[in-house]
Simulated assay, not measured.
Amino acid sequence: MASPSVTPDWAYEREHWRRGYFRVAGVDEAGRGAWAGPVTVAAVILPGLAQEYPFRDSKQLSASQREACAQEVRRVALSYAVEHAWPEEIERLNILGATHAAAARALARLDPAPQALITDYLKLRTSLPLSAPPRADALSYTVAAASLLAKTERDHLMLELDLQHPGYGFAGHKGYGAPAHRAALAELGVSPVHRRSYAPIRALLEAPTPLLTLPGPR
């Protein structure tokens, strides 16, 4: 996790601006490590004005701060899109492939279209100029903006899944491997929105069913 003292700037965007690419899309995801629910990818193009925004890596902010900043992203962005890859797609493509697929869908929806990309170490297959530095969500305003949309949109979905699948605690842990999540899985079993290829879920599915022990003769 990035240090809370880190403030994004426009250094990576300026590298593209100097080459004549002014519509630079930031791309980030939320939920890759979760055991349940989708992986969510956001793509955002901000105005190339090199001004300061309150946007930060979503992990540095409280839930209320993330919501306020996400609302501001939607207000100021030239274009933005959010896409989800659900467990079925994750099982079919693996988590990295599903993340790439969701990113491609989000980028295809941007209007105007991007001329260059910055991601948080997500090395997309693209013909566009791409910067993919580590910790870009903490260092780039554009990627921080995408981080905020991905995190808040996914959190909203996990609240809905909590209502649809009560007892698992999705509203609290958002599908990650918290102790409460482990306890709920042990009690309730695997739900339709769990990622069955993930080791803790696969282990539950592959565990032998206990044999019913009948009482012996008296």
Score class of each variant (00 low, 15 high):
Met1Cys: 08
Pro4Met: 00
Val6Phe: 00
Pro8Thr: 11
Pro8Tyr: 01
Trp10Glu: 05
Trp10Gln: 08
Trp10Val: 08
Ala11Arg: 15
Glu13Val: 15
Arg14Met: 03
Val24Ile: 06
Val24Met: 09
Val27Pro: 07
Asp28Ser: 05
Trp35Val: 09
Pro38Ile: 11
Val39Ile: 12
Thr40Tyr: 01
Thr40Val: 15
Val41Ile: 12
Ala43Pro: 12
Val44Pro: 10
Leu46Gln: 06
Pro47Trp: 00
Gly48Ala: 13
Leu49Arg: 14
Leu49Phe: 01
Ala50Val: 04
Ala50Trp: 03
Glu52Tyr: 05
Pro54Thr: 06
Arg56Cys: 04
Asp57Trp: 08
Leu61Pro: 09
Leu61Asn: 02
Leu61Thr: 06
Ser62Gly: 12
Ser64Lys: 15
Gln65Cys: 01
Arg66Pro: 09
Arg66Asn: 12
Glu67Arg: 13
Glu67Thr: 11
Ala77Gly: 06
Ala77Tyr: 00
Leu78Arg: 10
Tyr80Gln: 13
Glu83Asn: 08
Ala85Trp: 09
Ala85Ser: 14
Trp86Leu: 11
Trp86Ser: 07
Glu91Met: 03
Leu93Glu: 03
Asn94Ile: 12
Ile95Tyr: 01
Ala101Lys: 10
Ala101His: 15
Ala102Arg: 14
Arg105His: 11
Arg105Met: 07
Ala106Ile: 13
Ala106His: 08
Leu110Ala: 01
Ala113Thr: 14
Pro114Trp: 07
Ile118Ala: 05
Tyr121Thr: 00
Leu124Thr: 09
Arg125Asn: 08
Arg125His: 09
Thr126Cys: 02
Ser127Asn: 11
Ala132Arg: 03
Ala132Asp: 07
Ala132Ile: 03
Arg135His: 05
Ala136Trp: 02
Ala138His: 00
Ala138Met: 01
Leu139Cys: 10
Ser140Gly: 04
Ala145Pro: 05
Ser147Lys: 02
Leu148Cys: 09
Leu149Gly: 03
Leu149Gln: 04
Ala150Gly: 07
Lys151Trp: 02
Thr152Ala: 01
Thr152Leu: 00
Arg154Leu: 01
Asp155Phe: 05
Met158Ile: 14
Leu159Cys: 08
Leu161Cys: 03
Gln164Arg: 15
His165Asn: 09
Pro166Asp: 08
Gly167Lys: 13
Ala171Ser: 14
Ala171Leu: 04
Ala171Met: 01
Gly172Cys: 01
Gly177Gln: 06
Pro179Thr: 09
Ala183Leu: 13
Ala184Met: 13
Leu185Asp: 01
Ala186Asp: 11
Glu187Gln: 15
Glu187Pro: 02
Glu187Thr: 15
Val190Arg: 04
Val190Asp: 05
Pro192Ala: 04
Pro192Trp: 08
Pro192Glu: 06
Arg195Pro: 05
Arg195Asn: 03
Ile201Gln: 04
Ala203Phe: 00
Glu206His: 10
Ala207Gln: 15
Pro208Thr: 11
Pro208Trp: 04
Leu211Arg: 15
Leu212Ser: 09
Leu214Ala: 10
Pro215Gln: 11
Pro217Ser: 12
